[in-house]
Amino acid sequence: MLLTNDRDNELKCTIKNKTTRLQPEHLTHIWDSFYVIEESRNKTFSGTGLGLSIVATILDENELSYEVKLEDSYISFSIWFQLNIA
């Protein structure tokens, strides 16, 4: 996990993982309900496809900015939190 202050009064939290199956075309659907990369839909290898959809809903409801990036063989998820500096 990486914490940075790349915007005024905001803290960016980034989580980065190595991936071997994810392709750039998957990123457009990654926040969709029931979207799974594992085409066989075998639950031994993948989940239900609800996790990131639920995360996106929670972030949207709290008006938080977020993004996903795929660079080389790493996927990174970032969320920006407002800093309340008095």
Rank of each mutant, 00 (worst) to 15 (best):
V36E: 01
F45L: 09
N42D: 15
H29R: 12
S78A: 14
D72W: 02
R21A: 12
A86N: 10
A56S: 15
G47F: 00
I79F: 01
W31E: 01
S73T: 11
K43T: 14
W31L: 06
G49F: 02
C13K: 04
L64F: 08
E61D: 14
F45Q: 07
E25L: 10
G51M: 02
S33F: 07
Q82K: 14
T4G: 11
T19L: 02
S76G: 09
I75K: 00
Q23G: 10
S46W: 03
E61K: 11
I85S: 07
Q23H: 12
Q82W: 03
L22S: 01
Y66K: 05
T20W: 07
E67F: 06
F34C: 13
Y35Q: 04
T28E: 10
T20H: 08
T28W: 07
S40V: 10
K69V: 09
S40P: 03
N5P: 06
E63W: 08
G47Q: 02
T4A: 15
A56R: 11
N5A: 15
P24M: 11
S78H: 06
N62M: 15
A56N: 05
R41K: 15
I79G: 01
N5E: 14
G49N: 08
G51S: 12
K18Q: 02
I85E: 00
T4F: 09
S73N: 14
L59R: 03
V55Q: 02
E10S: 08
D72C: 06
V68L: 00
L27F: 05
L27K: 02
S78D: 05
T4I: 14
W31R: 03
S33W: 07
I58V: 15
D8W: 08
T14H: 02
L11S: 00
I75E: 06
G49Q: 04
E10G: 04
H26R: 03
G49K: 01
F77L: 12
M1P: 10
G51T: 05
I79K: 00
I54V: 13
K16A: 01
K18S: 09
G51W: 04
R41W: 10
E25S: 14
K16R: 11
K43R: 14
S46T: 15
Y74N: 13
H26C: 11
F45I: 06
E25W: 04
S76E: 03
G49W: 00
L2F: 10
K18F: 00
R7V: 14
K18H: 04
T14Q: 07
N62C: 13
K18E: 05
K43D: 12
I15M: 10
L64N: 13
L11Y: 00
R7E: 14
G51Q: 07
H29Y: 13
W80N: 03
E67D: 15
L64D: 10
V68M: 01
E38D: 15
A86E: 02
I54N: 12
C13N: 11
T19S: 06
D6A: 08
G49A: 04
G51E: 08
I85L: 07
S78F: 05
T19K: 03
Y35A: 10
S40F: 11
C13W: 02
L27M: 05
T19E: 00
Y35D: 08
R41G: 07
L3T: 12
T19A: 04
S33E: 15
R7Q: 12
V55I: 08
